[in-house]
């Protein structure tokens, strides 16, 4: 089809399709004043806030990852393993989940496993949005001009790698199971079953990790979103509907689980280092 839009005056006697290719025409003068934005609200606030939040977490996580100590509290009859170090896979672990890495690994045992949750979050659709806006400034806010000359989005390396988010999700499910196990283990008080404030912290942590993992967009796609005709895939539709309830809150879960994983780790640190005493409920 040929759309004709009355911009140019072409004198033609017959309609001449060759005049109107399907190529999108570029250029033309834009209207409005030549300013970055006309917005008058504090459009930068959300971006600055999430930028600072993320930065604080990265700083904390780095400290924790290299701390290589006080990540397991077994001394006070507790069984609390910091989520940053779970599963603990090297021989130098205070608490060994399984010594998969053997003795050659000399650095902090947090490092090899953190690749997975870090990769999961770094490729997460929500965090992508957050860092593109807060750090990359593309865009700094909606309707505010970005400072870059060119822009290729996620079409080139390295950002095209964000497409592998789904693989990290597969691992994330494994991690969610492990962290659930850690929460169960937090009920172990020596040889008896009990519960301390730490146990509660672990349960909340596992719950938030699940909420974050299940509300993931890749999860939504894998469990049913890929289907075109739901009436022919009843079970997948059921799953999709459930995940679709969680999915709109993905950002919230992303933040809560992020903050809480830090809280959990810090709590373990405080207890393991003897700074505080973990109150026991029963």
């Amino acid at each position: 089809m040929i759309l004709r839009y009355g911009i140019k005056l072409v004198t033609v006697t017959k309609s001449n399709p060759e005049n109107v290719g399907t190529k999108v025409s570029l250029g033309g003068v834009r209207g409005g004043p030549d300013v970055k934005t006309l917005r008058k609200d504090i459009w930068w606030l959300p971006q600055v806030a999430s930028g600072i939040g993320l930065a604080l977490f990265v700083i904390y996580a780095t400290w924790t990852a290299f701390r290589n100590g006080n990540y397991y509290d077994g001394a006070h009859g507790r069984d609390y393993l910091s989520p940053f170090y779970s599963p603990c896979l090297a021989s130098n672990c205070t608490y060994k989940t399984a010594s998969v890495l053997g003795t050659w690994w000399k650095l902090s045992p947090a490092l090899p496993i953190l690749i997975f949750p870090a990769g999961f979050r770094a490729t997460c659709y929500y965090y992508r949005k957050a860092y593109y806006k807060s750090y990359w400034l593309s865009p700094p806010a909606c309707g505010v001009a970005e400072p870059h000359k060119t822009y290729s989005g996620e079409t080139k390396l390295p950002l095209i790698l964000n497409n592998i988010h789904r693989y990290f999700w597969y691992f994330a499910v494994v991690f969610a199971i492990i962290l659930t196990w850690d929460a169960v283990a937090a009920f172990r008080f020596g040889n008896s079953v009990g519960m301390g404030l730490g146990t509660l912290v672990f349960i909340v942590n596992a719950a938030l990790i699940w909420l974050y993992t299940l509300s993931c967009h890749a999860c939504r796609h894998l469990c049913g979103g890929h289907v075109d005709q739901f009436s022919k895939a009843k079970i997948r539709h059921w799953f999709w509907k459930k995940v679709s309830v969680l999915n709109p809150h993905h950002m919230l879960f992303a933040w809560l689980s992020l903050v809480w994983i830090g809280v959990t780790d810090f709590y373990v640190y405080l207890v393991a280092s003897g700074t505080i005493h973990d109150p026991r409920f029963f």
Binding site: M1, I2, L3, R4, Y5, G6, S15
Partner: peptide, 10 residues
């Protein structure tokens, strides 16, 4: 549009 109408808008 897919059938190939020519449209003169506005």
């Amino acid at each position: 549009v897919t059938t190939g109408a020519e449209v003169f808008m506005e």
